[in-house]
Computed example of a mutant assay.
Amino acid sequence: MDRAKLEAEKQNYRFQKFIAGVGAALMLMKFIAWVITDSVSILTDALESIVTSSPASSECMLSILPCSLRTPTTPTGTGGWSSSPPRWRAA
């Protein structure tokens, strides 16, 4: 695997970590707002954040696995997945 492609994958992983962190921070702020206001609509929005941030977190975890299992004899990894991130998302 060439160096440019490996660097692009690392950059993609860093961006996915950033997105997952932003989602977690927004979810935390929504739960804090619910505690302060005791509003049911804010609670439902906070609970929806769990559904929307879960795929981002799992995608972030799954995208690093093939990179960590690479060896000189198996440049695409031994995890059985391709080096591209998963394409599934929550509906």
Rank of each mutant, 00 (worst) to 15 (best):
G23K: 02
G80K: 05
S57M: 14
K10Q: 07
S63L: 02
M1N: 12
L28M: 09
S63Q: 15
R70M: 01
W81E: 11
L47I: 03
S58V: 07
C60D: 14
W88G: 01
A91H: 00
A4Y: 05
P55R: 06
C67F: 12
A20S: 11
I19A: 10
T78V: 04
S58F: 15
E9Q: 13
P55N: 11
M61C: 09
S84C: 02
W88R: 06
A8H: 10
L69C: 13
V22C: 12
V40W: 10
T52A: 00
G23D: 08
R70Y: 01
T73D: 12
L6S: 08
F31P: 04
R89H: 15
S54L: 15
S58G: 11
E7G: 00
A20P: 04
V51A: 10
L62N: 11
L62A: 15
K10N: 06
S83K: 12
E48K: 08
S53I: 01
D45I: 12
A56S: 06
L26Y: 07
L6Y: 11
A90R: 15
G21M: 09
E9L: 14
M1Q: 14
L6R: 13
M61E: 12
T74N: 12
S84D: 07
G80M: 01
F18R: 06
R14H: 02
I42A: 05
T44L: 03
I42E: 11
E48D: 06
T37Y: 06
I19W: 10
A8L: 03
L69I: 01
T74I: 00
I19K: 12
Q11F: 05
K5Y: 12
A25M: 11
P72M: 03
L47V: 07
S84P: 01
M61S: 13
F15C: 01
G79I: 02
I32N: 11
V35L: 15
W34K: 09
E48W: 09
A4C: 00
L28A: 14
W88M: 05
T71D: 06
A4W: 05
G80V: 00
S58D: 13
A33Q: 15
V35N: 13
L47G: 03
L26G: 09
D2F: 08
S82G: 13
K30N: 10
S68K: 14
P85C: 00
E9D: 09
S63I: 00
S84V: 01
W88P: 00
S82H: 06
D45Q: 13
C60K: 15
T52D: 04
P85F: 07
T52L: 03
D38H: 11
I50A: 07
A4H: 05
Q16T: 00
A33K: 10
E48H: 14
D2L: 04
R3W: 09
A4M: 04
P55C: 06
L65K: 04
T76L: 10
C67H: 14
G23H: 07
M27G: 11
S39L: 00
T78W: 00
D2K: 05
R89G: 10
L69D: 15
A24S: 10
